[in-house]
Design a protein around this nucleic acid. Structure first.
Lengths: 108, 108
DNA sequence: GACTTTTATAGCTCTAGGAGCTACATTTAC
DNA sequence: GTAAATGTAGCTCCTAGAGCTATAAAAGTC
């Protein structure tokens, strides 16, 4: 239910963002103010299961070693994520979400 | 001196990368192989001083709170980075480097 | 077939980054 | 005046990630 609420909130926020973006284009809202909206409308960083992380890496066709280099973590960390020994959060999770959404090249 | 060596290495690697990229375009090297080159040629993640981090955030014209949201860390963390109480590394440093090179929008 | 390299798993210890909180200045806006 | 936003300061706690070694299963080489 938290997920449902989240989704509704997101769709509302998406509209707010779209509207704000329009105002910005029209020169009625400056860039800094847009950023204020963006905080609320930023793509939510979602948790990833070990399987999803592995699938993500295999989609990009790289070894754990190479994948780790892109994220600036050690290969051991990637191995542990994929086996569920450690769960990435904060900055690492953000990077994984970036790769999921935009591909490895986006963080090269 | 380590820095000098690094620089030289990087320029060499940059050439290797450029050459490899050419071979790839010509269809002589597949994408997976390119990735192998990329590991060596990835933009090095450099450490940032507290002042550089603050300058970076101010360049993007956002508060610590907003900045933290983009990086998926708490605002306390950003404050500590800028005051030199904690030094970001690994995934967080990678994100900061991304922002430095491509701007906040690159990680939105 | 033996051999090496690559890739990934497993187990271990240790450090410090980040979470999460409260309280307190300062500035800006209403 | 006072309310909101911003940043500092001082804590404690947890665990992610570093860093290492050993092992083992593929993949490529001779």
């Amino acid at each position: 239910m938290a997920a449902t609420k989240r989704k509704v909130e997101n769709s509302i926020l998406a509209s707010v963002h779209k509207t704000a973006a329009g105002l910005h284009k029209a020169g009625l809202v400056d860039k800094a103010t847009m950023r204020e909206f963006d905080v609320l409308c930023l793509t939510p960083v979602e948790a990833l299961t070990p399987d999803e992380i592995r699938a993500l890496r295999e989609r990009e066709q790289v070894s754990q070693h190479v994948f780790a280099h892109y994220l600036n973590v050690r290969k051991d960390a990637v191995s542990k994520w994929e086996r569920g020994e450690k769960r990435p959060d904060g900055p690492s999770l953000k990077l994984l979400n970036l790769v999921k959404a935009k591909g490895l090249e986006a963080i090269a």
